[in-house]
Write a protein that binds this DNA or RNA. Structure first.
Lengths: 212, 212
DNA sequence: CCTACCGATCGGTAGG
DNA sequence: CCTACCGATCGGTAGG
C-alpha cells in the first residue's frame, strides 16, 4: 500500500463514476451515489472536477477515443488495404470489448452531453468513418473485398461493436479474447474478407510497431 | 377535422412523449416538456396515464414487441429454415427501421424501467433469440447457411438493427425501403445466406398469410 | 381541464 | 498560509 497521489484519486473517481454512469445514466447517477461508492464526500470530488458534467465527459471522451482510433495507420504503412482493414477491425473490436462501458456513453446518453462536446465527438466519428470507408474501398478496388454500399456496411460493422454494451458481460460464457476473435471474424464476412482474424499473440508477434 | 376521442388523445400523448423520450431520455424529459409540446397541462396527461413511468413503458413495450416478434412463424409453416430466416430477418430489419425510436428505449434507457418490466422485456428477448437461433441452426444443418457461434452471430445481427437509433435519419440519403433491403442483405452475409432480400412488393405478393 | 402548490431531492458551495 | 476534507445547508427544480 502507498498513499495515492492526486492522479490516482482522480482515476478512482473516474473508475467509480464510469460504472455508475453506465448502469444508471448521467441523470440517474447522483453525486451522493458516486461519493457513497468512493466512501468520500462531495467537496473531495469537486476538488478534482469542476462539476458532474466534467466527470461524465472525461469518461465519455476516453472511451470514444479508444474505439475511434482503431483505423489510424502510420503514413508510411504500405501494406495492402485489406491487410490494414483486417488489423484495424481487430483493433476496433478489441477496443469495443475493453471499453464497452465508457464507449457506450457517447451514443446511449448523448442528450446529457453539451452540444459543443457532441460536436467534438461527431468530428472524431467522422474521421473514423472516413478512414474506414477509404480502406474498405481500396480493398474492394484491389479485388480483395466484396460489399455493396460502403457507408451502410461501415455503419453495420460499427453497430456490432457498439451495441455490445447491451449484452456483453466480462465474466460470461466466452472469454474476452475469444469474443473479439469471433466478432472480428463476423465483421470480415460483412466486407467479404477471406482471412481469419489473427489471435492477439500472433498480431503482437507480426506487428510490433507502436501506433501511439 | 373532428373532435378526437379519448383514444386519439392518448395516442397523441404517446406520440409526443416518444419523440421527447428518444431525444432527451426518460429522466431528461419532464412532464412540463410533454405538456408544452401538447399545449396542455399536467392534469390532462394524468387523466390518461397514472404517471410518467406508465407513458414510458407503454411506448417501450410497443417498440420492443414490434421488433421482437419478427421471428414468429405459424406452426404449419413448412418452408425450409433458410427461407423462413430470410423472411424473418427482413421483417426484423423493417421493424427496426419503422420503430427505431421506441425500439431503442428498451436498451438505451434500461435503468429507467422498473425491474419487473425489465424482466418482461428479457423474456420477450429470450423467446426472440431462441426462435432465431433455432432457425439458424436448422438452416445450417440443411447446408444452406454458414456461421460459427450461433448466439454470437445472432447478437451481431440484432446489433445491426438495434444500433440504428444512433445514426438513422428517416429523411436521409437513402430511402427507408432501400435501407431495409441493404441492411438485410448484410445480415444474409453474416449467416452465409446466398439469396438476395426480396423487395417489399415481392414479399407481399408471395406471402399473403397474416402472422398476427 | 387548469391553477396552485406539496414533499423530496437534486447539484453545488458555504464556513470552519 | 496551504491542502484536503467534514457537517450542514444553500438556491432551484423535479414529479405529482
Amino acid at each position: 500500500m502507498h498513499l495515492p497521489n492526486g492522479a490516482d484519486k482522480r482515476e478512482r473517481i473516474l473508475a467509480v463514476a464510469e460504472e455508475l454512469f453506465f448502469q444508471y445514466s448521467f441523470l440517474g447517477t447522483t453525486l451522493e451515489m458516486i461519493c457513497a461508492a468512493l466512501r468520500t464526500t462531495k467537496p473531495f470530488v469537486y476538488y478534482y472536477f469542476k462539476n458532474k458534467q466534467e466527470i461524465f465527459e472525461t469518461i465519455t471522451w476516453r472511451g470514444s477515443v479508444a474505439v475511434m482510433t482503431a483505423m489510424k495507420f502510420p503514413a508510411d504503412d504500405m501494406r495492402p488495404a485489406h491487410v490494414k482493414l483486417a488489423e484495424g477491425l481487430h483493433r476496433f473490436m478489441a477496443a469495443c470489448v475493453a471499453n464497452f462501458r465508457s464507449g457506450a456513453l457517447a451514443y446511449r446518453d448523448t442528450a446529457s452531453l453539451r452540444p459543443q462536446f457532441q460536436a467534438k465527438l461527431r468530428r472524431l466519428a467522422r474521421y473514423f468513418y472516413a478512414d474506414l470507408c477509404t480502406i474498405m474501398e481500396q480493398g474492394r478496388a484491389d479485388g480483395k473485398l466484396s460489399f455493396e454500399d460502403t457507408m451502410l456496411t461501415a455503419r453495420a460493422m460499427v453497430s456490432v461493436g457498439a451495441f455490445m454494451y447491451a449484452w456483453y458481460a466480462p465474466a460470461g460464457r466466452v472469454p474476452p479474447d475469444e469474443i473479439v476473435r469471433a466478432l472480428t471474424s463476423i465483421l470480415f464476412k460483412m466486407v467479404g474478407l477471406r482471412a481469419k482474424p489473427m489471435r492477439v499473440s500472433d498480431r503482437l508477434r507480426v506487428h510490433t510497431s507502436k501506433t501511439r
